[in-house]
Design a protein around this nucleic acid. Structure first.
Lengths: 122, 122
DNA sequence: GGCAATAGTATGATTTTTGATAGTATCTAT
DNA sequence: ATAGATACTATCAAAAATCATACTATTGCC
């Protein structure tokens, strides 16, 4: 039998839920990108050149399933699909923003104490 | 060569940093538990009966490395080690709290639209 | 029909994360 | 010297996430 984490710790469950829906390597970045503006599939690929097409599709499908984003297909040539945030997705944005700000503030602090600060990528 | 996600998207980098330091299945829950009070190793094990000892140790070491928590050893018998939040860890807490609140608010909303609401665990 | 452009799917391999289990270290009271 | 309590550490296995690559679908225009 596969165990669930934490089955008798009710007060932590909402956190597990959040981790479940925004887990993975790309979802937060995708939500961030969509919070700035509606984007096409291609555009997201260009923004994240290191995500594979299959993975991008998978993440978008999951975000759609969890009602963070909306997928709108235009029956045109060439094909066009637009992704945008739903109200639930927008409601989540303040959290991402806070994470961004915390990250910005603490990235340098943490790296300043390491040997080779030139490793900095951003 | 292993690619890094997103190497030319500077404005998303702080988010990647945050994901890196709080990623994994247990860190947020551990931080939540420590935000309530300082805890001993044993206590954390009891709180999260489904995390293995090895994994708990690993997560605690990483949180310590990233300066979220402080590890204090008491030279006593039986051995006693206490874990508590550092200022950086405390600074992160509002984010966790917001995640908790968002999760609480949206868990039901999402599950209400599924077939079997009795699956609810919390 | 054939091509070009966008947005995917499918499949199998590789990497990363997590788990299970057993063993170690420390100290003290008996 | 041994046992008992806490806090680990080591090793290998299993599961999950991600990747690389190739293939498919849709549509309008030539």
């Amino acid at each position: 039998m596969k165990k669930e984490p934490n089955e008798n710790q009710e007060n932590i469950c909402p956190l597990e839920f959040v981790q479940h829906v925004i887990g993975g390597k790309w979802k937060i970045s995708i939500l961030w990108a969509l919070s700035i503006q509606t984007r096409r599939f291609n555009e997201l690929q260009r923004l994240f050149p290191n995500i594979t097409q299959a993975m991008l599709t998978k993440q978008l499908r999951e975000l759609e399933r969890d009602r963070f984003i909306r997928r709108k297909v235009y029956r045109e040539v060439p094909p066009k699909v637009e992704y945008s945030l739903t109200p639930i997705g927008k409601d989540f944005f303040p959290i991402i923003k806070q994470m961004y700000e915390w990250g910005e503030k603490n990235y340098d602090v943490m790296n300043a104490q390491k040997k080779n600060p030139s490793n900095k990528r951003c």
